[in-house]
Design a protein around this nucleic acid. Structure first.
Lengths: 207, 207
DNA sequence: TGTACATCAGTGAACGCGCGTTCACTGATGTAC
DNA sequence: TGTACATCAGTGAACGCGCGTTCACTGATGTAC
């Protein structure tokens, strides 16, 4: 009661006060440590210092929590793509920077990246999740096609979106292969492989 | 006893006689149905009509069985890549055919494809698994670079392997995005997207 | 061809485990008056 | 400013579940003689 005002964080109040983000943080730490496959709602609650029934108040069930974490991850991911687009002048430079950020995000947050695409664990129809995913796609599409993209979503992507899909597939495949350890565990191996193949694509992206 | 000679399959003998492949088939059917995440050794044994302890004799543990299935899948996958390389004349045609077969394999056997790369469930150091994976890579590398590849493995892949990595990343990323439902669930949507972006890459693969 | 026996591939019951979710509850918060 | 009370965010015990693996065992196979 005395420290209730100046120290919300350390007081062991009955009400946590900030449980939702705390649970997301605990879940993130858990999957980063163990891998997405070994996520557990109980363990997440345990780490947040809360009873196993508490998460239900904020997320409904386990899938709800993972969906929220996936949406959060997609937002972070979108921020990374946006940052790349902002800081470069030429279009090729933007595409390149965005590809680098795409892969770097995957390597820096492998568990988040895994979760983002793990349809079996999340509710892909969730509005927040979908919105965050669409935003990321639009950023990518705009970087590749410039004004021509006109902010159209993935649903209505026509044949004109092909260059964007090509870049996306390439960078996504590279990120996945790197995460799956295909380029070896030597630090920097993935980066070197990327550097070697980048010009192959960018030099010919004269669309 | 009477049908023991002319009908090994239907007799409910104490010894199954062909349990190893039967378990692999059951496991394949199970993950095809439920997804890799919901694999269970007990359920696999149940489907093979055998006690839960039986698989241990052939695979040690659950991971052993999944590793064997992953290796088997990589072999099938390699066959698909080899078939593409065999039936075409020009190098570009071969690359294209192999890419098509790569994606088709993923779409036709999504659970197998998932499992092949699911490091958390299998023993990536298993010799059979590694050999099958290496073979697939060599087929891909040879198709892209021709004689220059000289059958070198993924480990010793130098900068010269960049075109192969680029093709691989692209086709792999495309397969993954398609499996993750990014191109929508409409049948043929993935194929149309692929057709649209293929020329972008192939027309410029003048290496 | 027959028999003894080691080896092998199964059984099925039992183990302990951690899980997600439910339930009736309780303590804190904040709003109406 | 004080009080009543509805609402909300927690508790913690309990539920039933399916899991992977272990164990002592048993029935079939195949080999040596």
């Amino acid at each position: 009661m005395t420290d209730n005002l100046n120290s919300v964080k350390t007081s062991r109040a009955y009400h946590h006060g900030d449980l939702r983000p705390a649970l997301l943080a605990a879940a993130e730490a858990l999957i980063a440590e163990r891998g997405v496959d070994r996520f557990s709602l109980r363990e997440t609650a345990r780490r947040a210092g809360v009873s196993p029934a508490a998460p239900a108040h904020h997320f409904g069930d386990a899938r709800g929590l993972l969906t929220a974490l996936a949406a959060d991850s997609f937002r972070l991911f979108g921020d990374a793509l946006a940052a790349a687009a902002d800081k470069e002048d030429s279009r090729i430079a933007r595409i390149r920077a965005q590809g680098v950020n795409y892969v770097n995000f995957a390597l820096a947050h492998p568990a988040r990246f895994d979760l983002m695409w793990r349809g079996s664990l999340i509710d892909a129809q969730d509005p927040e999740y979908r919105a965050a995913g669409q935003r990321a796609y639009r950023l990518l599409d705009t970087a590749v096609r410039g004004e021509a993209a006109a902010g159209e979503g993935l649903e209505e992507a026509g044949p004109a979106a092909a260059p964007s899909l090509a870049c996306w597939a390439m960078v996504h495949g590279f990120a996945r292969l790197a995460l799956d350890g295909v380029f070896g565990s030597t630090p920097g191996a993935a980066e070197r492989a990327a550097e070697a193949m980048l010009p192959l694509v960018l030099d010919h992206l004269d669309v």
